[in-house]
Design a protein around this nucleic acid. Sequence first.
DNA 1: GTCTATAAGATGATAGAC
DNA 2: GTCTATCATCTTATAGAC
Lengths: 201, 201
Amino acid sequence: MAGTEVSRRDELLQIAGELFARKGFRNTTVRDIADAAGILSGSLYHHFDSKETMVHELLDSFQTGLFADYDAIQASDLGPRAKLEAVIRRSFEAIDHNHSEVAIFQNDAAHLGQLDGFSYLVERNERFRELWTRLLREGVEAGELRADLDVELVYRFLRDTVWVAVRWYRPDGPLSGDEVAEQYLAILLDGIGVSTQSKES
Amino acid sequence: MAGTEVSRRDELLQIAGELFARKGFRNTTVRDIADAAGILSGSLYHHFDSKETMVHELLDSFQTGLFADYDAIQASDLGPRAKLEAVIRRSFEAIDHNHSEVAIFQNDAAHLGQLDGFSYLVERNERFRELWTRLLREGVEAGELRADLDVELVYRFLRDTVWVAVRWYRPDGPLSGDEVAEQYLAILLDGIGVSTQSKES
DNA sequence: GTCTATAAGATGATAGAC
DNA sequence: GTCTATCATCTTATAGAC
């Protein structure tokens, strides 16, 4: 009953998540998951109703935690640009700490969103867009970000730049999530910051 | 026999390409393709050996044309930064003119590359990396790009930023490929250009 | 060039024994 | 909690008629 105990169910969920992330949801069979867990495919159905249930639990619990932190950043008293930086750092943290979930979301969310019971993916995607574009607009209004930006285009640029990193980033690799976040922010902000060569003026 | 005639084979290839791009290779059945073409699935095998043959032809002919243009840019007498810009513009042109092929490559190349007969995808990926990182290094050496860059990281940043646009870009949408390329270059180069606020100095 | 018919294998899922 | 056994369905691909 200690909080650190890992249930068999969670164990299986993690194994499934790694396979979904590496091979894609549709390209991973329940037999693949069972093999990796050292059991037979039928035994999986003692723990889960279906393959879809597994990917749902992975994505839902991950997104709930991520959005709670986004909301906390939004509600903080940081300036718009600092909020944007915090949101981006938190996103790279997700790539580091929830690599499987981010990869699944990045690769399969578009298809999963069309399935029954997965419409929340579409809704959260829209909420995500509203949060990020709002931060960009507030940054422009506060004079902290360039005013000549097409906000929607920059949003897509930012969003894709951040999340697509899950394709090459390895949690056990040489770079930490924070280090990548700093380098990305340095490149990005020198592009969209109001001033670059003369920041200290 | 006129050059503008479209063979039934090419017609089917285009239909298959659009489905592969939208639903993914594995998620598209030969029945889907046949249905979209108004024939039965068995009839497809009069034109193609297999489903894999179809995706191979799509990717191979697309990549051959793209790399020929990359090589021409590389061999030109433009400066490193101008070459980099030209390569990026040509890439957005591909997203515009060969949307299906780019989407398939972006979504399925990683998995297809593991299949027999698709190892050329891995090889070309490496050649692509060498070309782009070389341009970045030459840009730094020529004093045209910031010297404090981690070239490999910037390469991934550039590569992902460009190609991931296929996810939202629509050839029949309000923005042309050129327009998106210009906006992306503006954001990018103000980030990695040696000077930004004082370009005309 | 397309259709009819069908083979051979993979896949998600179930029922009941241990 | 896992295994045995199995089903219904889907999928790629083939052979031969039209």
